[in-house]
Simulated assay, not measured.
Amino acid sequence: MSTRHASFAAFYPYYLTQHANMLCRRAHFFGSTSALAALAQSVVSMNAWWIVAALVSGYGGAWVGHFFYEKNRPASFAQPLYSFMGDWVMYWQMLTGKLSW
């Protein structure tokens, strides 16, 4: 990515182009879901190691999707905040059926 986007509204359409492969989107979805489960477990168990598990599973799912299926570089390397936001918007759109997965 050579262009830095000035707003999330400008970034998100680009973000979706980097997740065109259905298997990449699925890897993101499952990684994000397991990250949410690990965060919930950290609250229930009061064990901070679950936060580490959340980070590993969340980023792990995304990176598997990009490196094995999409064959591109994750947008988080160039614009980490917008990429983080984009992941959760994409997650919600897949969960609600607005984006196929």
Rank of each mutant, 00 (worst) to 15 (best):
S2M: 07
S2P: 01
H5K: 09
H5M: 12
A6F: 09
A10Y: 01
F11S: 06
F11V: 14
Y12E: 13
P13M: 00
P13T: 04
Y15Q: 12
L16G: 09
T17E: 07
Q18S: 15
Q18P: 04
H19C: 01
H19G: 08
H19N: 05
H19P: 07
A20W: 09
A20P: 03
N21G: 02
M22V: 07
L23Y: 09
C24A: 01
R25E: 11
R26M: 10
R26S: 15
R26N: 04
R26K: 04
H28V: 06
H28Y: 08
F29A: 08
F29I: 07
G31S: 03
G31F: 12
T33P: 04
T33M: 11
L36A: 09
L36S: 08
L36P: 06
A38K: 03
A38W: 11
L39W: 04
Q41V: 12
Q41G: 02
S42L: 00
V43L: 13
V43R: 11
S45R: 05
A48P: 12
W49K: 05
W50K: 00
W50T: 06
W50Q: 10
V52Y: 09
A53P: 08
A54T: 11
V56F: 01
V56A: 10
G58D: 06
G58C: 13
G60H: 04
A62H: 10
A62P: 05
W63L: 15
V64C: 13
V64G: 09
G65Q: 02
H66Q: 15
H66D: 12
F67C: 12
F67D: 04
F67K: 05
E70R: 01
K71T: 00
K71A: 15
K71H: 10
R73F: 06
R73T: 15
P74E: 12
A75W: 01
A75N: 09
A75P: 02
S76H: 13
F77W: 08
Q79C: 01
Q79A: 07
P80T: 13
P80H: 08
L81D: 00
Y82D: 10
S83L: 02
S83H: 00
S83K: 02
S83T: 02
S83M: 03
M85C: 12
D87V: 06
D87A: 15
W88M: 10
V89R: 13
Y91E: 01
Q93N: 14
G97D: 13
K98H: 15
K98S: 13
K98R: 12
L99P: 09
S100H: 00
W101A: 04
W101D: 11
